[in-house]
């Protein structure tokens, strides 16, 4: 697990991000989300649609910025984070794509504020998988799917992350901008 600070909203406390691989209980986790189980206190993101830590932080930053300015589109900050990964305004589709699905095996768990020791323990109790460093995110990225969902299918755009990331960032930032 790694911790980060948001420059725009440091008052919301540190951000904790963990990457789990070989997750065995995605079905259970998804069911708990559907049941609105409040004890599952993390935002859970499908790691195959993520290219790096910066993308995760952009989504969190946007969600928290909206929370602070009273503009959440979904019920909770955790669902808003998942929603803000998406470039479309369709909430249920966004949560389906970027959240946990029954066949997810690589998941990113995000927590806002709290004690790092407690959070790491609680995350590991909830998510039955192997905790790996965020630097291994690229091993799980599905570039083809990422290009499809972020509508970056032009042939002149390469698969290079350095080229894709600014476009992903733009697509995420421009959502909800009329």
């Amino acid at each position: 697990m790694e911790s980060f600070q948001l420059e725009l909203h440091p008052e919301r406390g540190p951000i904790y991000i963990s990457l789990f691989k070989n997750v065995k209980n995605a079905v259970e986790l998804r069911q708990r989300l559907l049941d609105q189980d409040a004890s599952l206190a993390w935002a859970l993101v499908n790691a195959s649609l993520v290219v790096n830590t910066f993308q995760i932080l952009l989504a969190i930053n946007k969600a928290i910025h909206k929370e602070v300015t009273g503009k959440l589109k979904t019920h909770k900050i955790n669902s808003e984070i998942v929603y803000d990964f998406s470039s479309t305004n369709n909430i249920s589709q966004s949560l389906r794509r970027y959240g946990v699905s029954d066949d997810s095996t690589a998941l990113i768990a995000i927590a806002i504020g709290g004690n790092p020791g407690d959070i790491e323990k609680a995350m590991q109790a909830d998510i039955h998988g192997e905790l790996v460093p965020l630097s291994s995110i690229p091993e799980f990225s599905d570039i083809k799917l990422i290009r499809k969902y972020y509508q970056l299918n032009d042939n002149n755009i390469s698969d290079n992350i350095d080229e894709l990331m600014p476009l992903i960032a733009g697509a995420m930032a421009l959502k909800e901008i009329k």
Partner: peptide, 24 residues
């Protein structure tokens, strides 16, 4: 913001967008 992104998508080097807050 939209023009910036439109150019970026067309393969022109422009600054990447991180967050747009039209209210502020």
């Amino acid at each position: 913001a939209r023009c910036l992104f439109r150019c970026r998508k067309a393969g022109i080097d422009t600054p990447a967008l991180y967050l747009v807050d039209p209210e502020a």
